[in-house]
Computed example of a mutant assay.
Amino acid sequence: MTVARRRTPAEGVVELTLTAPDGEALPAWQPGAHVDLLLDDGLTRQYSLCGDPAQPGEWTVAVLLERDGRGGSSFVHDTLTEGTTLQVRGPRNHFALEEAPRYQFIAGGIGITPILAMVRAARASGADWQLLYGGRSRASMAYLEELEGDERVTIWPQDEHGLLDLDAVLGTPREDTLVYCCGPGPLLDAVESRCASWPEGALHLERFEATTVEAPDDALDTFEVECVQSGVTVTVTEDRSVFEVIQEAGVDVLGSCLEGICGTCEADVVEGTPDHRDAVLNSAERACGKTMMTCVSRSLSPRLVLDL
């Protein structure tokens, strides 16, 4: 794809509008979807689509510069100028906007990117919604020009008001409301804690950072994995991931973050019981056990059969 436009919607944030070189229509997407940007030296990074799904010829992402990160955002900021070409993979959506009569959106910093597309969709559908949007300062908060002035939006810069007042919007559980939140880990943890008394399935989170998942008591150190499409059976030991072992055995499997947050390595489970250690699946999807993230998740059964 080609970087057709580049602009700076906030301090430290670059927005890229990507188009196909031949101008053809791109795969359709819905709010919550993200794409992989294949960068230099094998770097692959995931960014939420924050444009308009009704514009089939372009995708828009916004990237926060993190100089102390792993290099992806620095590459985007320093290298991807207008006219640059790069490979893009996707879209995928593990943060889909489900239909509901009311939404409570909560965004922290660059977490506004998937939430912005959701707000636009809720606006268009006539649903009841509220947005609580926080950031370090107004200057660091992208897309304020679109959001300010809407009485349903509460802008909450930390240097003016302190931490987000989550109790004001989450203190009373509501049966008619879905909560969608994206932002830094501490914010997501705080929202998750306050939604513990909300109805099952009300909370939807998207994390940018991996979480620490404690191994269950019945976790297995070693187990077999059969990939039925590839005709490959391997043994996964304690010191290696399912993804590493099956890829080394020649199974065609995609991976990106390898931390259990992007969903690229998801595989369908034919038999066996996964030991879920990702930050992608919700509680219902984990309980169902029909899919797993091979980069971090393991097995609770001696044999796991995957549709790979």
Rank of each mutant, 00 (worst) to 15 (best):
L132V: 11
R5F: 07
L187H: 06
E266L: 13
V61D: 01
G250C: 13
E209V: 15
I155D: 00
Q229T: 15
C288V: 15
T172N: 12
G23L: 01
Q30G: 12
C182W: 02
E192M: 10
V179W: 10
Y103S: 02
A4I: 00
Y180W: 09
P186T: 06
A96Y: 08
D218T: 12
V119G: 00
V35D: 02
T211A: 15
V280A: 04
A279W: 03
D218E: 14
A267P: 02
E285T: 10
Y103A: 02
H34N: 09
L281W: 04
V232Y: 05
T294G: 02
V245L: 02
R138P: 06
E145T: 14
A122N: 04
E58P: 04
C295A: 08
E224P: 03
S301K: 03
A122S: 11
W156V: 11
T113K: 01
A127M: 10
G255E: 08
V191W: 08
I112E: 01
E259H: 10
T17R: 15
E66W: 11
E15W: 07
G23N: 08
R286W: 03
T237P: 04
I115S: 00
T2P: 07
T2I: 12
W29V: 00
L65D: 07
T273M: 07
A139M: 03
W129P: 03
G108W: 01
G272M: 03
E248L: 11
T8A: 14
D278N: 08
F208C: 09
R298A: 01
R123W: 11
E146Y: 12
D78G: 12
E285N: 07
V236C: 04
T17W: 11
T17L: 10
A54T: 15
A215F: 12
T233A: 13
G250E: 11
A122V: 04
G250H: 12
V76P: 01
E238N: 15
H204C: 03
V245T: 07
M141E: 00
H34Y: 10
S74F: 11
H161Q: 15
G111S: 04
G109I: 01
E248T: 12
V245A: 00
G51Q: 05
G83K: 11
R70A: 14
S301P: 09
I261N: 00
L116I: 06
P53G: 06
A127K: 09
K290Y: 13
R92T: 11
P9W: 08
T172C: 07
C295P: 01
E175L: 13
G201E: 05
A284N: 07
V225F: 10
G185C: 08
L43A: 06
G72I: 10
P186I: 08
E226P: 04
G149I: 02
D78M: 14
D52I: 05
V179M: 08
Q55S: 15
E98H: 12
T85W: 06
M1F: 13
A62D: 00
L203E: 00
